[in-house]
């Protein structure tokens, strides 16, 4: 019967476009990257040769790539805990408020909506050492005894000359993005500024899912302080949310590119040379496809490892959800 035959082919017709695209757009490129990472291929060059693991050796031996791995890991290592800490902290504060919850929620979520490139350019402007408002504000504080006393630690009996702020008041504030010691930190700050609101929203959702009775039960059992209740009830029950938030923030932080490309171009002296930027600069700008492909493979291994660890946790903690 033709009807039957049709019924049998229909599912395949339905999945065919998606499967084709998954193979062509996602699987084949992974294979190509893996293959090219063992060559010295470049675009527009007809012949190329296999160079074995030379590209990988470069990544793990040359100083430039050591800096690349280091700056990526530092960026992830700062942005992930900071944006999760701030996300969780603000979610806890907001959920305990009696009014204006929606106001704070909306404001903190705003950076998630705005193009990171545009906001990074605005931050660059604000961090500009001559006409930016950040240094203007900081040095205005030096002139006021109150702010100087507070920020330099003089109120606490610290010698102003030994504190960061007191010292900066005397010798000038940093160039931020132009200073090797501060550039990566400044980019991390922009990253945290953008990411924590997203994490806050996920934690707020996680918090509303915690049954009230559990807090009462914990109190009955002697968990008197707010810290005890957090440690015994809130934190464990937020476990699945935390696993998810850690994963997505880690993957996103590994992929940081917009702010790096626009503000520092990997500099000064490669201090902000993160992996995505390295792939872009080496392979696409300089046509060194082989090394770019090798970085791509290392990158994919990082990202896949993070997701697989997450899946492992999710399966272990399934009873919570």
């Amino acid at each position: 019967m033709t009807g039957r035959a049709q019924a049998r082919t229909v599912p395949y017709l339905f999945v065919a476009p998606a499967v084709t695209l998954m193979v062509v757009i996602l699987l084949v490129p992974v294979a190509i990257a893996a293959l090219l990472s063992f060559t010295d291929y470049s675009l527009g060059n007809a012949d190329f040769s296999f160079v074995g693991i030379d590209n990988y050796e470069d990544i793990f031996s040359r100083r430039t790539y050591a800096k690349m791995i280091a700056s990526s890991l530092i960026y992830v290592g700062v942005v992930v805990p900071a944006s999760i800490g701030l996300g969780l902290g603000s979610a806890l504060l907001i959920s305990s408020l009696r009014f204006a919850q929606d106001f704070y929620k909306a404001v903190f979520f705003l950076p998630t909506m705005a193009a990171l490139l545009a906001m990074a350019i605005v931050w660059e402007f604000m961090l500009n050492p001559t006409i930016g408002s950040v240094n203007a504000l900081l040095s205005a504080g030096c002139a006021s005894p109150f702010w100087h006393g507070l920020l330099s630690g003089a109120f606490l009996g610290v010698d102003p000359a030994t504190s960061w702020y007191g010292n900066a008041c005397a010798t000038g504030f940093p160039l931020w993005l132009g200073d090797r010691a501060y550039a990566l930190g400044s980019l991390c700050f922009i990253g945290v500024w953008q990411a924590f609101g997203f994490n806050m929203v996920l934690y707020l959702a996680g918090l509303t899912a915690i049954p009230r009775e559990l807090y009462h039960a914990a109190e009955m059992d002697g968990a008197a302080s707010a810290w005890d209740r957090f440690r015994l009830v809130t934190w464990p029950l937020l476990g699945p949310t935390t696993v998810f938030v850690v994963t997505i923030t880690t993957i996103r932080s590994f992929q940081v590119f917009d702010s790096v490309e626009a503000l520092t171009a990997g500099g000064p002296s490669k201090s902000t040379y993160v992996m995505m930027y390295a792939i872009y600069e080496k392979a696409i700008r300089q046509n060194l496809i082989g090394i770019g492909a090798a970085i791509t493979v290392v990158f994919l291994i990082f990202v896949m490892a993070v997701t697989l660890i997450q899946r492992h946790y999710v399966e272990k903690r399934v009873h919570y959800s």
Partner: peptide, 15 residues
């Protein structure tokens, strides 16, 4: 395929 972020395979896609 959920494991593969498109940005990460930008280079082979570009080629």
């Amino acid at each position: 395929c959920l494991l593969i972020p498109v940005h990460a395979i930008a280079l082979p896609l570009y080629i």
